[in-house]
């Protein structure tokens, strides 16, 4: 066992993937010489050289398109987009090109690319450097979306994403970069599309992912004090998402709350709630309640941002509502 930081786990996954497969390349703004805006790619340039790890101009649209072109020409590009807010500029390459190429070209090619990008508030970064836009990508057939919740899942999912023959959006919650965990030396493999039970409990299911997992665990502790045992499903993968694990948990607890940091309206939670209201209808003993950010841009001021972010109190209140 050794202490593993989230940010280091990302770097180690990249290092191991690049060692295992010479076709993996890494590029993005300030990923090489500076080692990444959040320090995740430190040392990789020195280890793998400038041909495989390189800095780019500030040209997100062209870089994402280039990732598609490289992926259909024999490489496995890993592109870092500095903030998820900037993925607005890469939409054509992802939505019209990467997502559709395999299907549209008759199943005769694959687009093995990974786009790593940080999302999430709490840093006072303001309206254009804090957004959680993962639902946009999860809405597009052909893309996969994953969002790890700790260093071990970050490592395992990034390895899985790079190995995946499809375009994968790998979302890193900024609040997790400094987080650490005691991890085994041999890190476990993760599978895209598989959730895990982060905490067992019999009374209510809370489905969440990414940085919000910590909020959910804290809420579960608070609820345990009231005699309510919450089971927490950590989705890890949003597209595809693990319907079976969520349904199995709902079948045990008969109550469901879905929680994320992203805006609640039209979000990942809406999809899960709608699906469970359908296939899990007979299991439900209470309303499915969603907890997410309010329908507004993320404010800059600390007190405003705190009020904006979905909290332990919001989640506890939601659980009480479905148990009522």
């Amino acid at each position: 066992m050794a202490e593993l930081r989230y940010q280091k786990a990302i770097g180690r996954a990249l290092e191991d993937a690049m060692t295992a497969d010479p076709t993996v390349i890494l590029f993005g703004e300030d990923v090489a010489e500076a080692g990444g805006s959040f320090g995740a790619t430190k040392g990789l340039r020195e280890k793998f050289g400038a041909a495989r790890v390189f800095d780019t101009p500030i040209s997100e649209a062209a870089l994402a398109g280039a990732a598609v072109g490289a992926a259909v020409s024999g490489l496995k590009p890993v592109l870092e987009i500095m903030f998820m807010d900037f993925t607005t500029l890469v939409m054509d390459a992802l939505v019209n090109q990467a997502a559709k190429a395999r299907f549209m070209f008759g199943g005769r090619c694959a687009v093995p690319l990974v786009l790593r990008t940080p999302h999430g508030g709490g840093l006072g970064a303001g309206p254009q450097h804090s957004q959680c836009l993962e639902a946009w990508f999860a809405h597009v057939p052909g893309l996969k979306v994953v969002c790890p919740s700790d260093p071990v899942s970050a490592y395992g999912l990034l390895r899985a994403a790079i190995d995946d023959p499809n375009p994968v959006i790998f979302v890193e919650n900024k609040s997790l970069y400094a987080s650490k965990i005691d991890a085994p030396d041999e890190l476990p493999a993760f599978e895209v599309g598989k959730a895990r039970i982060a905490r067992p409990g019999a009374d209510v299911t809370i489905v969440t992912y990414g940085g919000a997992l910590r909020t959910a665990l804290a809420a579960a502790d608070a609820l345990a004090g009231e005699g309510v045992e919450a089971e927490i499903v950590d989705l890890l993968s949003l597209q595809p998402w693990d319907e079976a694990t969520v349904l199995a948990s709902l079948s045990r607890t008969h109550r469901l709350v879905v929680m994320h940091e992203a805006v609640e309206a039209f979000g990942v939670g809406a999809e899960i709630a709608a699906r469970m209201a359908d296939i899990g209808f007979d299991e439900l003993d209470g309303p499915i309640v969603r907890v997410g950010a309010p329908f507004m841009p993320i404010p800059f001021s600390k007190p405003l941002e705190r009020a904006y972010m979905p909290s332990v109190e919001n989640l506890v209140a939601a659980v009480r509502r479905t148990l009522a």
Partner: peptide
Amino acid sequence: NGIVGAGLSIALGSALAHKTR
């Protein structure tokens, strides 16, 4: 390509792959 201009960046990435390889 149904998207005007999109081929430019795809070819860019393909050129990058040729050079890298």
